[in-house]
Amino acid sequence: MSYKTKTVLRKSAVHALLWIIVAFCLFPVLWMSIISFKEVGESITGFNALRIQNPTLANYKRLFELIPIWTNLVNSAFTSIVGTVTTLFFCSLAGYAFAKFKFPGRNALFYFVIATMMISAEAGAVPLFVIMRRVGLVNSLWSLIIPRMATAIGIFYLRQYMLDVPDAILDSARIDGCGEFGIYRKVVLPIVKPALASWASITIIARWNDYFWPLLYLRDSSKYTLMVSVSMLPVSDGLSTPWQVVLSGTTLVIVPSIILYLIMQTYQKSGQVAGAVKG
């Protein structure tokens, strides 16, 4: 085989494999959106699912009757956005302190942050619920925001970027009489903007998709996030809700996160997200 045929073969193999993988990635989502527009009477067995005769919005209408969609949507958006903004603020503040200040106990504290990075709060769910009840946050959206306002992993990730901020800039800002918080806000934050953006996109999607904590803390349907309401769809309409309706619910959950991801994708440069992991 000549070098040229080899390259052509290789090129087609790479593309073919990737197309197969893309098909596996996209298929469940496409399948779901197609079925959500099918009439309840139509067959959705096996391959029939993919043929639509009369596209309809009836499933979505039914969905809006079954669960308080707008309220749940606002709840989800509120916790995702406020949760992301607060966690970005506190994590970057702590990350800045670890990266650019020398103070007694810094290394010990930083080791502590790393050592706790992998431990998840979920294991302590029983006492956490008790604490939340004591401070009156059960059934409040703040129960989803406050405990995660500063996380070890966020601090670790943002600190790695703060390390690259040149000390000279910080020192000259100090000489110009800028306060420490002012330096953080006006000098450091603008420099690490790309890192903040990529951390924000990961966090906001994770919060939108959050399920365990809202399931644990939120007690009535007017407080539910979209994720909790949708998860209860299969049993909410008497014994069973038609698949078409359930799938219109999952479509409403998934489509916003895909759109959000595509928007943020256009703002991001490659390879940033995983930058905290050194090779």
């Binding site: 399948w31 779901m32 999607i205 399920y211 994720m227 359930v246 619910g249 996160s257 959000l260 991801y261």
Partner: peptide
């Protein structure tokens, strides 16, 4: 990358 963006709860139902 898209599968990672999709909520596991919604995908579970699917």
């Amino acid at each position: 990358f898209l599968p990672y963006v999709c909520a596991s709860v919604a995908m579970g139902l699917i």
